[in-house]
Design a protein around this nucleic acid. Structure first.
Length: 296
DNA sequence: CACTCGTGGGA
DNA sequence: TTCCCAAGAGT
């Protein structure tokens, strides 16, 4: 009778200890706040772009109370070009709630974290695990892809997180708390560095010898199409263009300046400006000009 | 569940 | 050059 196969985490954790990157939010001394800031910034944004901004933020605002005390406009400007600037507003709002309702300490449970703006299932689990060392299931796009291949035998996971992802991920988490904490970051790192979406480096993979996708001959993806992100001419591009104008000057901006920045569709420009105001990313002034939001 | 919300670098 | 997509969340 064959022994149970060694769990995936043994090899993946060993690989991580040798090959994982030394990122500043991964140091043993990183505070829960530092981890939380990194997780928000890393939502849909690559590590290389996050790192310098993360350093600036933690130097300026080393605790939630520091961030809670500044204006939304300061936060949006400091967010720079990380993208999805509503994340900056929500992070500030989370800091306000942490300061007012949690004694300035980042909550230690997923349920409490989930009540904070900008924190969803992934980020709540990540903070609990990476900042507080708790055993939990952390599922991001990397985890889904690695396990879809290694366990599921397919090239890519479904377009959105589904039951198969949760079941595969839950089954792999080691029982021991410390092992689980390493596994959760290790499997993400494997997905980021080796088991990548486009051109996986299977020759460098510590579990290639037991990967179901490799064993199947690396079949191409067969499932429903992953939607591409349209960009040219979209409201997202328009909003980004308008916000860039406001971000790059400390002074309020006239409507004429904004019109020059987006000339292709005036109706769209007005709609997007309205939506930026509604989101709290832009503040209309009494004199007709626009600015990054100053109030709370 | 499907869709929106930025940005820039690599293939 | 064009296309893909990167530690998701909110609606």
């Amino acid at each position: 009778m064959p022994a149970d196969p060694e769990p995936l985490w043994v090899e993946v954790n060993a690989w991580y200890l040798r090959h994982g990157r030394d990122l500043p939010w991964r140091t043993p001394t990183a505070s829960a706040w530092e981890v939380l800031v990194s997780e928000i910034m890393l939502q849909q944004t690559p590590v290389a772009r996050v790192e310098p901004v993360w350093r600036e933020w933690l130097e300026r605002w080393p605790t939630p109370a520091h961030l809670a005390a500044v204006s939304p406009g300061d936060v949006v400007r400091a967010w720079g070009r990380l993208g999805y600037p509503r994340r900056a507003l929500r992070l500030r709002e989370a800091a306000v709630a942490i300061t007012a309702e949690h004694g300035g300490e980042v909550p230690r449970t997923e349920a409490e974290l989930l009540t904070l703006p900008g924190i969803g299932v992934y980020t709540a689990a990540a903070v609990v695990c990476f900042a507080h060392g708790e055993r939990t299931v952390v599922i991001d796009t990397n985890v889904r892809r690695v396990l879809a291949r290694a366990v599921g035998g397919v090239a890519l996971p479904a377009p959105s997180l589904d039951r198969a992802d949760r079941e595969r991920a839950t089954a792999q988490v080691p029982a021991d708390r410390a092992d689980a904490a390493v596994w959760n970051v290790a499997v993400m790192e494997l997905g980021a560095l080796v088991c990548t979406a486009r051109a996986p480096r299977c020759g460098d993979c510590p579990i290639e010898h037991r990967c179901a996708w490799v064993a199947a001959g690396r079949p191409v993806y067969e499932g429903p199409a992953h939607r591409g992100q349209a960009w040219a001419g979209t409201d997202r591009q328009c909003r980004g263009t308008l916000l860039t104008v406001l971000r790059e000057t400390p002074d309020p901006v006239s409507d004429a300046d904004l019109r020059r920045a987006w000339t292709r569709d005036e109706q769209q420009r007005l709609r997007c400006l309205d939506s930026l105001v509604a989101d709290g990313l832009v503040e209309p002034l009494a004199d007709g000009r626009f600015a990054l939001p100053s109030g709370s």
